[in-house]
Design a protein around this nucleic acid. Structure first.
Length: 424
DNA sequence: TCTGGGGTCCTAGGACCC
DNA sequence: TCTGGGGTCCTAGGACCC
């Protein structure tokens, strides 16, 4: 059986989202900053052309921003998430089988579409997404997922392809593999790239000629799957329904240096509540909770400290109140006076479906009551926005909160913001 | 010289992704 | 002054059991 996949990838996604709502940015350099406005995580083509690398710390480009040479935005995940949904919904009109691979990427299973004009079809997809959502996308079409990644990358890079590349005949596949450097192959990270280049394996084509045994020995079974995929043998299926997450993590760097227990406790409580909400959204509960804190690893003057503590809770839970309770216990154990803290986080793990909870005979908590309360809190959060209702431990003024100085409005999801757009 | 041999579970750590 | 956040999978090795 022959397989056929398309990988659709939004171009410079976060920067493109900002542009949809402010067309005056078209043709101009735009960057989007990480949480805390720390570094660059998305760049428009014009920003790339200025030589701004991915991950560039903001302070290094501050001058360009202040002189108006670049527009910089704080990341606005609510907006990007909503735009992502629109793109994915549009894509799912073209085939019922899609895998939302990340916020800006989607695999489409084109199954046995070999008898249609793939090139025209791919272009129709691209045009439709652009027209309906305002987001420019690139498409790579090929017999396996790994090859569709290769095709997508070349589609974006080549001015001739201009955003669409269909890679189905062996000759073109060879040429594409030859044109793809080993470090640009999906699944080859920094370590493997170094290892392979030392052995004169410089391109995807070189890699595809290696023996299965050698790859298995040196790169585990993961490498073997990639090898087969690049040779055109499909090993990676389309995962249409995202499996429930096995770990959920909420962590942030602070907007300022923090040294008191109370500030750490507020932030940790907020992250625990956020994890609880994520658990409820996927209808599951966690047995373990981990809290970690650390100082600023870039600061040479400050004393460094990292620690984490994991607590096994008596009964799996997804309640804000309980998770905050155990997070506080864990934090107390690892907190040390006399350090400047930069970041804290909460991870919940050992996740089980919420209808399969192992009860504890000595459990005294009224779990039904908790569940109803959380339902009410979720309802209020949905209606009035995040953090309008919260457990007291989470604090009120939250001076530790992250910095986000250049955030665009949540155009698509907030009534007041939507009105602003209409008024304009 | 030589120290049973499996099986299973768990954890830490390494690799990768966007 | 200023350097993101959130995930997955795989393997090796130790503990433990019979």
């Amino acid at each position: 059986m022959t397989t056929l996949f398309a990988l659709c990838d939004c171009n410079n996604f976060y920067a493109s989202c900002e542009r949809v709502f402010d067309p005056s940015l078209n043709g101009k350099p735009v960057v989007v900053l990480s949480n805390n406005d720390g570094c660059v995580i998305a760049r428009s083509n014009e920003a790339k052309a200025l030589g701004i690398p991915m991950g560039e710390p903001y302070f290094k480009i501050r001058n360009l921003v202040e002189n108006g040479r670049i527009s910089a935005y704080s990341s606005n995940y609510v907006l990007y998430g909503d735009m992502s949904d629109r793109v994915m919904q549009t894509l799912s009109l073209f085939t019922p089988n899609v895998e939302v691979y990340s916020i800006d990427e989607c695999f489409l299973d084109l199954g046995d579409f070999y008898d249609i004009d793939l090139f025209s079809y791919a272009w129709e997809i691209k045009r439709t997404v652009q027209q309906w959502t305002g987001i420019p996308v690139s498409l790579g079409v090929a017999p396996t997922k790994a090859l569709s990644k290769v095709a997508n990358r070349l589609a974006k890079k080549s001015t001739k392809a201009n955003g669409v590349l269909v890679l189905t005949d062996p000759y073109h596949i060879q040429k594409a593999l030859e044109a793809t450097k080993i470090e640009d192959v999906w699944g080859i990270g920094g370590q493997y790239a170094k290892f392979l280049k030392k052995r004169s394996i410089n391109t995807a084509l070189d890699f595809s000629k290696l023996s299965e045994n050698w790859v298995k020995q040196n790169m585990t079974i993961v490498g073997v799957r990639l090898l087969k995929e690049l040779r055109g043998e499909s090993c990676l299926e389309l995962d249409e329904v995202a499996p429930p997450k096995k770990n959920i993590c909420t962590s942030r760097s602070f907007g300022k240096k923090v040294n008191t227990f109370d500030e750490l406790q507020e932030s940790t409580a907020s992250y625990a509540a956020k994890c609880a909400r994520k658990l409820r959204q996927q209808k599951s509960c966690a047995c373990l909770i981990t809290v970690f804190i650390h100082t600023n690893r870039f600061s040479e003057n400050d004393k460094q400290y990292y620690n984490s503590k994991t607590i096994c809770m008596p009964v799996a839970t997804n309640s804000d109140i309980e998770l905050i309770h155990y997070a506080s216990i864990a934090l107390k154990e690892i907190y040390r006076d006399g350090y400047w803290y930069k970041k804290s986080g909460v991870i919940v793990s050992e996740i089980v479906p919420d209808n399969m909870i192992q009860l504890d005979l000595l459990d005294t908590l009224d779990r039904d009551k908790h569940a109803r309360l959380m339902g009410v809190i979720d309802g209020l959060t949905d209606r009035f926005g995040r953090s309008k209702v919260r457990v007291a431990t989470q604090g009120i003024d939250n001076t530790w909160m992250l910095r986000s100085d250049f955030k665009s409005p949540c155009y698509t999801t907030r009534i007041d913001e939507i009105q602003k757009v209409y008024v304009r």
